[in-house]
Nucleic acid binder design. Structure first.
Lengths: 240, 240
DNA sequence: TATACTTGTGGTCAAATAAACCATAAGTGA
DNA sequence: TCACTTATGGTTTATTTGACCACAAGTATA
């Protein structure tokens, strides 16, 4: 089993820990800002692909579960824990990685950008949000993984209320609709959207309104956590 | 990289081929018979778990993609190729495999039982169909993988017409309904089911009827391959 | 201050769909 | 012939959808 240099998060010291040598994790981290869906990419700061952009990822330690490895890596990469994270699938074309046979397990994460400060991870020289339409050519098969994630996201938001993980705690119905429009690539009717989403009783109307807008301020809403969980399990139907 | 004994399918000779040593594939193979959903399990013929039942699976070769490995293993295990096969996800608890750290990638397959002859695979002493309700305690985390697959199947049949892969080429509407009832664990209305499924234009009515039944014989149907593919991509909505 | 403009919010109406249920057809077996 | 079973094709009512309208409530500008 390979032993890889790992820098301890707290102390900054280099420690040694055994990792699995033919399996990695790569994360597709989605965010949403001003009507645009975005993905967090990192620029590699070392290795043969120095300078090129790719998905944030890393190695799995010998003693941790795959899910835990994904959570750990995501915390290291974004500084966030307890965010929405889901395994996508394993990607395993024999030639996907040039230095040997490595299978990667894709994860997909949805984060509230308001909670996140951009910063580069350990081995990354830079980290940046890219709009979906502006994704550059990425290393290895990362463009494929990203495409797959996007497809997955589109399916997922129609079957469970996971899209909400991309919005701030408090949001207007219009913002929620714009999120769905952006993810699904469709146009919706304000009025019908409002009727449909309110009927599910998923949202709690707050005693608060938008501020600093140059038009009539809209009411703010947040989720009802209980109904959210129930609908996440049961599945919900959000067709347009 | 580990070198593992592999018996060549055609010649029966033992050949050596390098395999990945910390990743396996396990397949959950569903079949449907006389109104019951079933799973194909194998009894291990060698190793520390000799005699115990588990999911059919195997090692990934150094030179093949993960998907190809799944197809190859399935052909070796069931004698069938070109059947419905889909990756589930990777299962990677650190202690799931007692002899070292091994992550397994789950696949799920749907087969027409009429096409399949039961036979044991290379390292298996026996292979047998089990009704979902009668699944015994399986090796490693295979019960977890099976539970996950079942959940996945339930979601999948509501979003794509994949359940059809479990039925014979020609079937009656009643048989199709029974399949859905069994998978989803619900009761349906004959009349409404018929209306709904026929409206999608997915089925082709044949000039043929059931035989050897002691009641009015029902018309047989088969799929329209073109519409089947279109609906598989686009997604279809089969809520009850 | 009046007016235009923008977005929010609450409706209407017709068409499509779903759920529950009924009636008859077409076959079997006694 | 009759009783019985399943197939098949309705009907009826409630619910949901989609398209569209009208006014409310604010801002920006003349």
């Amino acid at each position: 089993m390979k032993v890889k240099k790992i820098i301890d998060k707290e102390s900054g010291k280099v420690i040694e820990r055994s990792v699995m040598n033919s399996i990695t994790i790569d994360c597709v981290i989605f965010g949403f800002d001003k009507g645009s869906l975005e993905v967090l990419l990192v620029q590699h700061g070392e290795g043969i692909r120095k300078g090129e952009w790719g998905l944030p990822g890393g190695w799995i330690r010998e003693s941790e579960s795959v899910d835990n490895a994904a959570h750990r890596l995501l915390a290291e990469l974004t500084g966030l824990d307890s965010i929405y994270l889901e395994q996508l699938k394993a990607f395993g074309e024999p030639d996907r990685f040039p230095l040997g046979r490595v299978i990667t397990i894709g994860y997909f994460a949805l984060i509230k950008k308001e909670d996140y400060d951009v910063r580069a991870g350990f081995t990354a020289s830079d980290a940046k949000w890219y709009k979906i339409a502006d994704i550059p050519k990425l290393i290895y098969d990362h463009n494929d993984i990203l495409d797959y994630s996007l497809e997955h996201l589109r399916n997922r938001v129609r079957q469970a209320p996971v899209g909400f993980n991309l919005l701030p705690e408090k949001f207007t119905l219009f913002e929620l609709m714009k999120l769905y429009e952006e993810i699904l690539g469709v146009e919706m009717d304000k009025s019908n959207f409002r009727r449909k989403i309110l009927r599910m009783k998923l949202l709690v109307e707050l005693d608060e309104k938008q501020k600093d807008v140059s038009h009539r301020a809209a009411k703010l809403y947040e989720f009802d956590q209980k109904i959210y969980e129930k609908l996440t399990k049961k599945g919900f139907n959000f067709e347009f």
